[in-house]
Design a protein around this nucleic acid. Structure first.
Lengths: 95, 95
DNA sequence: CTATTATATGGCATATATGCCATATTACAA
DNA sequence: TTGTAATATGGCATATATGCCATATAATAG
């Protein structure tokens, strides 16, 4: 059966779609950002593990929110995905 | 004497300017993002310390790159500034 | 100059992230 | 079903982030 998430993940591999998807999600959770990035690169946790040097088990935990990664860890993850990490502080609400 | 940084910091308090400044800085360092956000809110480290519950000394260390903060810490900082934390993974280079 | 505010630095105890292993669970294909 | 890949979970040692204090240095104002 094809789930909503399946479709979403597939679509996320399209850079255009991904960009727009994230644009309308300013509060999108960090976790989702990580998963999205990995999926968009068509990587499994194991593959990302090999490329980043971070254990698959730990990637899983991060993606499930059971870990609280440091900036360095996130950068290493980004690196493993051929990406760079960007963080922003966005004002909470428009006046 | 008025330095470049003085001017930059002053200008960063203008939301419009800040937005554009950051737009042309996709690789802008996390550290700079934190400082910019604080300055844009016209806060001192001490004030941010009071609002976020994070020690001024530690804010200084973070802003100087001598600490490697976790996601939670960054979120608490964002909160103290009335902002939300947003992270992105951006592809390293265009093909 | 002196005072005051802002930021930086060092140290240290304790909480927690990290890294790694084994294994369980889930998803998927033959 | 059975096999295989993908992801999740639990545990544990060790490295490191966090929190806090005191104080140093830098910047600013009077």
């Amino acid at each position: 059966m094809i789930t909503f998430d399946d479709m979403l993940n597939e679509q996320l591999q399209d850079p255009e779609f991904r960009k727009e998807y994230e644009a309308i999600q300013p509060e999108m959770d960090v976790i989702r950002a990580i998963v999205d990035a990995r999926i968009s690169q068509n990587l499994t946790q194991k593959e990302l593990s090999e490329r980043s040097g971070i254990n698959q088990a730990d990637i899983s935990k991060i993606e499930n929110g059971t870990r609280n990664p440091s900036l360095n860890l996130l950068k290493r993850l980004a690196d493993g995905m051929g990406m760079t990490l960007k963080i922003e502080f966005v004002p909470k609400q428009q006046a």
